[in-house]
Each structure stands twice: as structure tokens, then as C-alpha cells.
Design a protein around this nucleic acid. Structure first.
Lengths: 244, 244
DNA sequence: GAAATTAGTGTACTTTTGACACCACCTTAT
DNA sequence: ATAAGGTGGTGTCAAAAGTACACTAATTTC
């Protein structure tokens, strides 16, 4: 079979070259609020004027021979040292004008071999209990820290929109799968559990009805332990064990 | 800001070049079975020996300045002349070994400017009532036709897996959104409606309970018309109007 | 020991779900 | 004309799930 030149009969065979990246929206729960993991785009040690560089969601280019899921994992752990956490692909973002801000273009010029190339990114979201994961910045992240969802600033590229979609998808998934336990510490109180639901779903729930449902839930087991160091009646601690 | 060479401190800035494609899994319902729209990879008029070229889901490369959703629409209509139908992005497929079959490599050599380049594809699914859309092949599709889901042959690339995921996502979405109406003809019977649910969900439903639910559904309105040309009692026809 | 704060508990009503069986109407064959 | 085959069309009851609602208990701080 020869390489017949077909570009005339096949209209869309014209070449386009893309870079491919992964962006990880990592949600964390601290017992009170829902937070997102953000990095500051810069090398560790670099101190830029604060308006010069954007915050961003931890993301980077996919390597030539790498699977997407692997890339998500590698990139997250490279930038924030969070390893082995639940990561779920939720959406590709490919608008041709994803990168329009001058600051973003500048950053690409510094850190990317082909700064003008169009880049399509695959969004992953992820769930983590803040108390169990302390991010440490490395690679081109000069900082990596939790940021309460309501305080998220203007981010690089289209990362604000990416977080928005990630949250929406998280909401949908929480109701159906057992994803939510990824967001809780190993030992949690029913109060935290309920607050987490309320935060993710964005509405308040009835305490007694909520607890009724928890009783019917598989895998949520009470421990022989109570909360400590709180300024009120200590709550029973529970944990989650995956049912077979 | 200069272009400081940072490749040593930034481990993953090494260049990777991707082609990006879109693959459309179009489900159609004929009142009986669920079908998928497949094309035959070849130019119209070309008659190849049947084992020489693969069937595939209609997909192609994204153009340099094109939005993903636009690309999905363009590609579907270019290959099958189905225009303006509901298309939903559901998943990116990016395994490095997506293309392993010799036939597929050969095909890429004929039809793609950079046949060796890694290509990541974005899967879209789509829903259509077969009676209202007659596919006509064009561009590199030498055929375009409906194929019952259970008869789908071995397809090009990882298209079998793509259909599988698309179906799974369709199932999830049907229960929550009003997507299902895209699959029905404008006028439909409750029998077709129920069969469609059963087929998509892969289980049988109770007729009376089903109809009870339909009554509670917004937007499903009875017409002043009955089915014709059937060899049994003709059914009441219904239609769907989007509620405000 | 009073005040503040969260934990923890049960009941009655409504809504939803699921199981279940028969007659009606149309076509075709005799 | 009538019988047979096939799909259309209908209601009831019981169980499960959802929803609204208010008070006491345990702990800390002052």
C-alpha cells in the first residue's frame, strides 16, 4: 500500500500539531470547608512579584510515551508530592483560545519548548483528606497549597473554568459512587461527614435523616474512640472500610 | 522575560507532539434495537477486499484552530452527512499503544500526513432516531451505515473500547437527563419508549410502572394520532416538547 | 454552675417503588 | 365470521425511602 497523496480528496487531512497536558483539580476537605490544591507557577526559591505569576492547578505536559492516567499521577506527584491518590478523568478542554492572557504566554515562553503550540488539556479531579496529605512544592511549582474554594483567585489559562467543571462532576459522582470517602480523614465524625455532603452538594441536610441514611450505608463503622480536643461534647469516631 | 533554558530544572518540559482526533459514537434507535453508526475506512467508490480495511466509528483529526465540539460536529457531518445532532464529549482516549494493528498503521500511512505520530482522541457520543437520519458516506468514508450493537465487528484502533465506554456513559446519563428523547422519532409509542429504556439500561421494566412514571414526566404529550401499518392494535402516539 | 456549642436520638406523614393479571383492539388465516 | 396471535392499555396494594420536626446530653470556658 503506497502513500497516495490524498489531501485533495480528503479535506481534513491537513496537519495540526498539539501539545497535550493534564490538569489535576484536587479537592481537599479539612472538616470545615472544601479546598482546592493550587500551585504557584515558578521555580522553587524564585520570589516573583506577586502580580507577575499566576496561581494554577497542578498540570503539565504529557510525555511522548505516557498513558494519560499515568501522566496525571506523575504530574501531580512531581509538582506537589502527593502520590497515589484517587484521580479521575472528567473532561478535555480544547478551546483554541484557552491561552489568551499575556502573563500565561510569557510563562509558556519560559517553561515550554514550543510555547506557541496549541495545547489541549485533559482534566482530572481528585479527592483527598487534607489532614492526610501535606503538599510540598517541587519542579516548577514554587508553592503548593490548599485554597478554600470560595477564595480561589483568578488562575492561569482556563483553570477557573476547569475547577468549576471538576466540581460539577464531583457533585454528580458523589451521589452515585463511594468517592466521598476519599475526602474524609480515616477517622471522622458524623458531623464532618454531613458537613462534607452539605458542602459538596451545596445545600443543607437534616441531621436525623442523614444519620438514618448513614446507618443504612455499608462500610461506615463506628470505632471505640471519641473525638478529642474539641470545645464541646466529643463525637463518636467512625471509619470507612470498603465492602466486598 | 527571557526564554531561560530550564530543561534541566524542569524535568518534564521535554517536547512531545500529538495529533488530536475526535471519535463519534452515534447511537441510533430503530424502534427495536440499539445501533451504532459505523463507517468503512476508504474513499467512496473504492472497493477494497473486505478484509483489507476496517470499519470504524466516524472520527478524524481536529483542525489547528478548531474547538473540540465544533470538530466533532464537522467530522460527523463530513463523513456521514448527519448534521446538527446532539453530541456530548464523554472521555479522552490516550493510551500510547492505541494503534497497534498493522491494518490501522497502513491506513494512517495512506490518509494521515504524520502517520507515526501519537494520536489522542476525544470521544463524543451522540443520539439519534434512525428514522430521521439517513447517513450518506463522504470524504474517506466509503460507506456509512447503522450496525446493531450486538453485531459490531472488530473495529479500527481502539474503537470497540470507545463504543463500550460511550454506551456506559449513555446509560448513566439517560437516568438523569433528558437525553433519551434524542433517540426517539418525533412521534413515538410508549412501547418504543419503554423498549428503548430497556435496551439502554439492559434490563426489563414493568409496563404499568413504566407508564406510571411517564405520566409523571414533563414534556411527554399524547398526540391526536395513532400508529398505522402495524399488525396489531395501533398504539397512541406521543411526542416530546421541552418543558421550560 | 451558667453559658456556649455540638452530639445524639424517634416518630408520623408523604412519596416512590415494585410486584402483579386481565381485557381491548387490530391483523391474518381458516 | 370467527378464532388465534400479538401488542396496547389499565389499578391496587404493600414495602421502602424520603421528609419534616424538637428536645436532651456531654463537654469546655468563664
Amino acid at each position: 500500500m503506497q502513500n497516495v497523496a490524498l489531501n485533495k480528496t480528503v479535506p481534513n487531512a491537513s496537519a495540526a500539531t498539539f501539545d497535550l497536558s493534564v490538569d489535576n483539580v484536587v479537592f481537599g476537605f479539612d472538616g470545615e470547608k472544601l479546598q482546592v490544591l493550587l500551585i504557584r507557577q515558578g521555580l522553587p526559591g524564585e520570589d516573583m512579584e506577586s502580580d507577575r505569576f499566576h496561581m494554577a492547578v497542578p498540570g503539565d505536559l504529557v510525555l511522548p510515551e505516557e498513558d494519560l492516567d499515568e501522566a496525571a499521577d506523575r504530574i501531580l506527584s512531581t509538582l506537589t508530592s502527593l502520590k497515589g491518590i484517587y484521580l479521575k478523568q472528567f473532561q478535555a478542554f480544547g478551546a483554541p483560545d484557552r491561552v489568551f492572557d499575556e502573563k500565561d504566554k510569557e510563562w509558556l515562553t519560559r517553561f515550554r519548548p514550543n510555547p506557541d503550540r496549541r495545547v489541549v488539556t485533559i482534566g482530572y479531579y481528585s479527592l483527598v483528606s487534607i489532614s492526610e496529605y501535606r503538599p510540598k512544592p517541587s519542579s516548577f511549582a514554587s508553592r503548593a497549597e490548599w485554597c478554600p474554594l470560595e477564595d480561589v483567585p483568578r488562575l492561569a489559562f482556563d483553570h477557573n473554568a476547569i475547577i468549576e467543571s471538576g466540581l460539577q462532576r464531583l457533585r454528580e459522582d458523589v451521589l452515585q459512587r463511594n468517592i466521598i470517602f476519599e475526602l474524609l480523614p480515616q477517622k471522622f465524625t458524623l458531623g464532618q461527614f454531613q458537613r462534607l455532603h452539605e458542602i459538596i452538594l451545596g445545600k443543607s441536610l437534616d441531621k436525623r435523616n442523614f444519620r438514618k441514611n448513614v446507618k443504612r450505608m455499608e462500610g461506615v463503622v463506628p470505632l471505640d474512640e471519641k473525638q478529642e480536643g474539641v470545645l464541646h461534647k466529643p463525637a463518636q469516631l467512625y471509619t470507612y472500610r470498603k465492602p466486598d
